[in-house]
Structures are given as structure tokens and as C-alpha cells.
Nucleic acid binder design. Sequence first.
DNA 1: GACCAGGCAGAAC
DNA 2: GTTCTGCATGGT
Length: 311
Amino acid sequence: MRLRLVSPLHLEATLHSGQAFRWRPQADGWHEGFIRNRACRVRADGRHLIVQAERGLTTDDVLHYFRLDGSHERFLAEVRRDAALDRALAAYPGLRLLAQDPWEVLVAYIVSANSNVGKIARTLELVANQCGVVADGVGRARFPMPDQLVRLTEADLRTTGMGYRAPYVAAAARLAANGDLDVAALARLPYDEAHEQLLGVPGVGPKVADCILLYGCGHVGAFPVDVWVARVLRADYFPRKRLRAGEVGAWARRHFGPWAGYAQHYLFHERRSARPPATAAAHAARRRVAVTSSATRARTTRGGGVKVTPS
DNA sequence: GACCAGGCAGAAC
DNA sequence: GTTCTGCATGGT
């Protein structure tokens, strides 16, 4: 299919900015991945998006996935701007928040804890391979739904490199497979209620819950605070204050408004793309953003563990 | 070898 | 209630 773009779509930044983990850039300009768990290739061509997909993927699916449905323009028009966000918007025009499958996002972000983008991507690919449902034409496996994933043992999961997160993924699969967790329904719940439900899933804390709601459930106001975002906020908003991640997240939702999470992805990507070389001085600077956690806080106040400390 | 990576859970205080 | 620590694993 060939879709006309009414506003910019920065494919490279959108697909490889750490929100989705199964897109692969090809040498010929295509990007290979999955939308609604159907294999496809996408490429930008001037003011058009070219999509080659296996049967079953509709135009509406693609429009929704890339927010070619007007929601990106609504974000740009309605989000509260400030200097830091303007800088990120200018650096990556056309970066879009993807509307991904909530189940795959849930597993991906459980796996993401204390990991990195490359390793997360490798692990998810191996998880898909373990279940072995290969999509037509591309030779890559679809991501397993809960009833498929639940058949894997913790030992199976550990072979994918996810390490200590294996029991969390197994437990999440059991909850979803037996109906105790309805990830699709989270999109229809108020933010607070959906967030609270997710905190009941093993391996899901405040930050991961916000990622699931933002990237998989359409809660564009959810504002995950990780080490990268904490660095942005510390530098640009709280140079002299010491705040918990939960407090920062609540502040950000008020500051940026209903599209706060969309703004967060811009801030995250811009900061992460500009990350300094791994020098000793840079490491020392990063260590000043202390990362702690609290199960008690996570289950009660939904606060987080990232402290934004004075520089 | 030390440190880090889109944190979380449980123990200690 | 807050803070500290261990956790699997691979890259730098």
C-alpha cells in the first residue's frame, strides 16, 4: 500500500527510538518488522509511506500504528510547549509515538528492566523463535500470544537471555492466558486504574507500567521516568531539587498536559541520541542520578525510584 | 575488571 | 516509610 503523508514521518527515529524492538533497518532503505503481528516492510518515499505486508494487515491498521489518523497533529497542537520540548521537536521532526500491541509491549518492558535496547531486541526475537510461528514470506517468527507463551518453561525463557526476568514473563503469560489480566481492556480504563492493575503483574513497577500504558494502550498522558528522562528533567527543570520519580511523573503530567507521554518520548529520544561517550567523567556524572527502588512505594503511592538530584 | 543498561522485589532500617 | 542490595546478561 502507498499512503500519502499530510505531515512528516521520521521513519528511522520512529522505528528505532527505543519504543519498539522488532524493527530491522535494511540496506535498501526498507525497515522490516511487524504491525498487529503481521510481517511487513515499510519505506519512506517523499511524501508517501510505502508498505508491503502479508495478508490481513489493513490500511486502517497502518494508519493507526503510525498515528497517521490525525492524533500526531493533535499532539503537536495541544501539548504544552517549553524550551526543552521545542528543542526535541526541532531535532526529530516526524518522530511519532507508535500504537503497538499491548501484550507484546508488556513482555518487552518487563524484559527491559535494567537492560538495554539491543539486548531487549535480541531477547524478544529469541522468544518469538522459541514459539516458532513463522510469518509468511519473511522467515521471522510472530510474537507469541499469551496462550502460546505460557507453554514455555522458565528454563526455555532463560535461553533467550532474559535472565532473572524469566519468572516474571512466565507469570504475566499465565495471568493473561487464564483471563486474570486483560491487557486489551487497559486502554479503556482510566489511567490510574489501569496503572494500578499493571502493578499487580510480577516484574511490573511504576516505570514499566507507564511504558505499557503509553506505548501499548494509548494512554498518551502516561509519563515513564527512567534514567534518561530523569537526566533531562534534572538538567532542564529541577537543577536544585531532589524529587522522586513518582513526583516527577505527576509533575510532568500536569506540566505537559494530556499528551505528556508523547512529549516524554521526544525528550527521551533526544537525550539518548545525544548521549556522551563512555568516559570516566561521564560515568561519574551519570552515577549522580541515583537509581533506587521501593516495593512498598510501588504498591502504595505508585512512586518510583529515580531521584533527581542537584548537580 | 568495572561499569552500565528504558528497574523490580525483598530485606533492612 | 524510606533506603539498600541482589539480580542475569552482554556490551563498552
